[in-house]
Design a protein around this nucleic acid. Structure first.
Lengths: 360, 360
DNA sequence: AAGCTGATTGTTAGCGCTAACGTGAGGAGG
DNA sequence: CCTCCTCACGTTAGCGCTAACAATCAGCTT
C-alpha cells in the first residue's frame, strides 16, 4: 500500500492514526485527555501529574514512571491555553515587523523565528502594512492580549525606538536594528561599520570621488549607512557631497543610475542595498558606462543573487541568522533574570567581487 | 518638547501613558481590570458585560451604554487567553511554512498574513528548517496546543498533501500550492498554466527547440512547471527532451547556463524561476552568448528585480497577495460553515520584457 | 385578576491548569 | 518515646471568561 509514497512520509500514517483517534473531529464521543484523566489512570492526584510534566523534584521515581506511562498511553498533551491563563505566560514571542517584502526585514524575521524556535519559543507575527501609531499600538495590544512573553520589534524606521521607549508594554522588548536604550534592548548589525568597510575598500583602491545612493532617510539603516559613508570620506579628507536618496527598489536605483551615468561626477558609488545596485548596473549598462572600468559599484546586504549580477557585485554582507540569535539571547536574558536592557551588535563583512577596481 | 519628534509618533506618547498606568510593569498594586471590575463599576453582573462585548442582542440600550462607559473608563480589554480556554478558539491561524528564504514561499507567507489580518485573524508561524515527518508533526501539534482555529500549510513539497490527508488535526487545513482533496482545501497559482504561457510565448515567436531548466522535482511547483513545459511542447508537435534540473538558486542556474552555452542545443530556455534565470543570464554573458539574439530566456515568478536584469527578463508573474486572500477565503468558509474542502486557483500572467525575441 | 409571553438580567458551573497550603509517613535527634 | 523535620503527595482555590439555565418584570391576553 505504500508503494508510491515517499519513504519519509510513511511514518506519518502511523502518526495520523494517533491523531485521528482523539481528534476533536470525532466530535461526539471523544474529548482530549486532561490532567484529571491521566491522574485517574495512574492512580494519583492531578497535581502529581502536573508535577511530573513540570519536572518538579519531589516526585518519587516510581510515581513518575507510572504517570509517564499513563501520559503515553492516553496520548496526553498539556493544554497550553489553560496553562497560559494561570501562569500568564505562553512560550510565545510576538514579532512586530514591517517592510517584509524587503530582503533585509524578511531575513531578519527569518533569523528571529529560527532562533526563537531553537530556544523553545513560538512566534506570532504581525506585519505592519503601514507604520503608524495606530498600527503599532494595535499590534502591541494584540500581543499583550495573547500573553506573549516578549516582543521583538523589527520596524526599521527611525521613530520606532522613540515610540517603544514610552510604550512600556510590561514584557521585555527587543528592538531589532537599533541600539536600544534603558528600557528597550537592541540587536543590530553595525550599519555604520558596514558603510565604512565599503567606502574604505573604494578609497584603498584609489577612488577619490565616491558617491552614495542612499536608502530612505527615515529608515534607521538608511541614515546609518549614509553617515558611515560620509564620515569615512571626511576622515580620509574627501568630499561627501555626492548623495542621492532612493527608495531601496531596483527601480529607483535605475532612475538614479541614469542620472549618474550622465553626470559622471564620481568614479565609485556606494549603494545602500543590492537591489538599488542592480538598477544602477542596469542603467549604467544601457548608458554604456562600464562597471568597474568606468565606475566602481558597491552594494549592501549580499543577497544570494548578488554574485550573479552583471558584473558580480562587491557588497557588504549582513548575517541575519546571527542577528536573530543575538536577538533571542537578549530576549531570554530579559525574560529570565528580568535584567535591564542590553545591546548587541553584529559585525558586517565586506564581500569583494567584480564590480570594483582601481579608477581609470 | 515634541520639536524633533515625527508627527505620527507624537500620539504614541498619549497612548504610552495609558499603557503605563495599568501596565503589569507597575507590579505591586495594579492588576488589569477584568469583567468583574467593569460589572461592578457599571452596576451590572459580569455576564451582562460579557454580553455587551460580544454584541448579544438582548441588552437594553441604556445598560449597554453604561457598560461601554465603564469599559472605556477602566481601559478594560478582554483576556484572550481566558476566552480561548472556554471557547476553544483563539482567532489565530497557524501557518506552517518552509523554504522561506525563497522568493515564492516568502511572499506566500506575506500574502497569507496580510489576508488573515484583514479577516481579523492573527497568525502564528512555524518555519520548518527541514521537511521531515517529525518536524511537520511537531509544528502541527504545537498549533493544536495553541488552539489555532485553522492551519495553513505552505510546504511546497510533493509529499505534503499526502501527509496532511491522513493527519486530520481537527481544524480546517488549507494547503497552499496544491489542489487539496476531500479533507484538505487547496489554494494555488496554476503552475501548469504559467509554464504553458511561457512556452507558448516562445513557440509563437518561432522557437522550435525549447529547453527547460527545472526546479527540484520533489517540489510541487518544480514538477508542475516541467509538466506544463513538456505538454505544451508536445501539443505543438515539438520535442521535450531538453530538461535539466536545478535547485532554484542563481548558482545552479549559472552552472547549468555554462553547460547550455557550450551545447547550444536550444534557441530558447524556459527557466523554473527568476533566480536561476539570473544565473543563466550571467553564464551566457560570460560565454558570449547573447540574450535574446542567440538564445531567448523566460523566467518564472516576476520578482521585483527581474525587470532590471541584463537583459530585463520576460517571466511569469504570480500574484501572491491574491493567493493569500483566496487561501483565507477557503479558511473562513471552513471555519464558518464547517463546509468540506474546496479548491481555488489563481491565474498567472506572462510579463514580456527584453529577454525573448524571434530566433536568428 | 390570573396567566402567559418575551425581553432583560443574574446565577451557577465549568474550561484545564498551577500555586499555595495541608497532611501523613518515615527518619533523625534529643 | 516524643518532637521536629523532610519528603511525597493530596486538597483547595482560583486564573477570566462563556454557556446554560434561572429569575425578574413589563405588557399582553383571556
Amino acid at each position: 500500500m505504500f508503494a508510491d509514497v515517499a519513504p519519509w512520509a510513511r511514518g506519518l500514517f502511523v502518526v495520523a492514526r494517533r491523531f485521528a483517534q482523539n481528534s476533536p473531529m470525532t466530535k461526539s464521543n471523544a474529548r482530549l485527555p486532561r490532567l484529571e484523566d491521566v491522574a485517574e489512570r495512574a492512580g494519583v492526584s492531578h497535581q502529581t501529574v502536573s508535577r511530573v510534566i513540570n519536572n518538579h523534584p519531589n516526585v518519587s521515581k516510581a510515581t513518575r514512571e507510572r504517570v509517564e506511562a499513563a501520559i503515553a498511553e492516553l496520548g496526553y498533551r498539556r493544554n497550553a491555553v489553560a496553562r497560559s491563563l494561570v501562569t500568564r505566560r505562553s512560550q510565545t514571542i510576538g514579532v512586530l515587523a514591517s517592510e517584509l517584502s524587503q530582503y533585509g526585514p524578511a531575513n531578519t524575521l527569518l533569523g528571529v523565528e529560527q532562533a526563537a524556535r531553537d530556544a523553545g519559543y513560538f512566534v506570532s507575527i504581525a506585519a505592519l502594512k503601514s507604520v503608524s501609531r495606530e498600527a503599532i499600538f494595535d499590534a502591541l495590544r494584540h500581543f499583550l492580549d495573547q500573553a506573549v512573553d516578549g516582543i521583538v520589534v523589527s520596524v526599521p524606521h527611525s521613530e520606532t525606538l522613540l515610540a517603544l521607549t514610552e510604550l512600556k508594554p510590561g514584557v521585555p522588548v527587543v528592538a531589532v536594528g537599533s541600539l536600544g536604550n534603558d528600557a528597550v534592548s537592541g540587536a543590530m548589525v553595525d550599519q555604520h561599520r558596514g558603510a565604512e568597510l565599503a567606502v574604505r575598500h573604494l578609497i584603498d583602491q584609489g577612488h577619490r570621488r565616491i558617491g552614495h545612493v542612499a536608502g530612505p532617510q527615515d529608515w534607521i539603516d538608511g541614515t546609518a549607512r549614509a553617515e558611515g559613508w560620509s564620515e569615512t570620506l571626511r576622515a580620509a579628507g574627501l568630499d561627501d557631497d555626492l548623495l542621492v536618496e532612493g527608495d531601496w527598489s531596483a527601480g529607483s536605483g535605475y532612475e538614479i543610475g541614469r542620472k549618474l551615468a550622465e553626470e559622471r561626477s564620481a568614479t565609485a558609488i556606494f549603494v545602500g542595498n543590492d537591489q538599488m545596485a542592480l538598477g544602477l548596473l542596469r542603467a549604467f549598462h544601457e548608458a554604456g558606462v562600464r562597471v568597474p572600468d568606468d565606475v566602481s559599484v558597491v552594494g549592501f546586504d549580499d543577497q544570494p543573487e548578488s554574485g550573479y549580477f552583471t558584473p558580480p557585485l562587491t557588497t557588504v554582507r549582513q548575517d541575519f541568522e546571527e542577528l536573530g540569535r543575538r536577538c533571542m539571547d537578549l530576549m531570554l536574558a530579559a525574560v529570565g533574570d528580568g535584567e535591564g536592557a542590553r545591546t548587541t551588535v553584529v559585525e558586517p563583512k565586506l564581500v569583494v567581487r567584480a564590480s570594483t577596481s582601481a579608477p581609470a
